[in-house]
Amino acid sequence: MSILVELNSASAGYAGQAVLHDIDLKINAGERIAVMGRSGAGKTTLLNLLYERLAGRVALIPQATALVKTLSVFHNVYMGRLDRHPTWYNLRTLVWPRRRDVAEIEQVLDLVGLTDKLFAKAGALSGGQQQRTSVARALYNGRPIVIGDEPVSALDRIQGGEILGALCARHETAILVLHDIPFALGTADRVVVMEAGRIALDAPARELTAADLVPYYGG
């Protein structure tokens, strides 16, 4: 299996202050990794670091849904592929989308159950709907690696499960921050737990049980 990215005692931080220390992490193509840990443990910083290293091959689902609230769901999802069309085509899509693009995005929205909101303003959606739009943007983006920061945190178990399934089916490699332990064990084949800026646990999911993970959440 080919190595996608390899971190050797990497550190990272904001404005000179280190948030991550001594990170050793090797990620192979095709892996499904759940990144876990308490808030403030450095998960988002780790994802940012990986995103920098993998830039160009990643569909990103940021923690804040980062939608343009004055544009429609269609346009927000379309943004996933802005770089793959000429600028004049993007400008045209802004005022007068082509039927082919609309149909394609409708299919993607079907995966997250939002087809009825195709031309609704993103700002008018509920929190969960906005999160699903953000996921749809990554699905439509279609790059081989998906990096998601709590992509299903605002959704219920059933819907969240479906969406994680769609993400794993569409993208070869998935690196997702998840908080729900059964979800993580069910979706991922590898679990990385962060604690105070270090990797506290890195193990195949099949070797872990929920009881192994609970201590990291203070339970």
């Binding site: 940012n48 995103y51 990643v58 990103l60 004055t70 943004m79 802005l82 770089d83 600028t87 400008l91």
Partner: peptide, 23 residues
Amino acid sequence: DYRQDAPKGVNLYCYETVPRLYG
């Protein structure tokens, strides 16, 4: 604040900056 994978140049202007600042 733009998301990390935000587009650039004219695309950023038309799809992010202007829509977000239009009000």
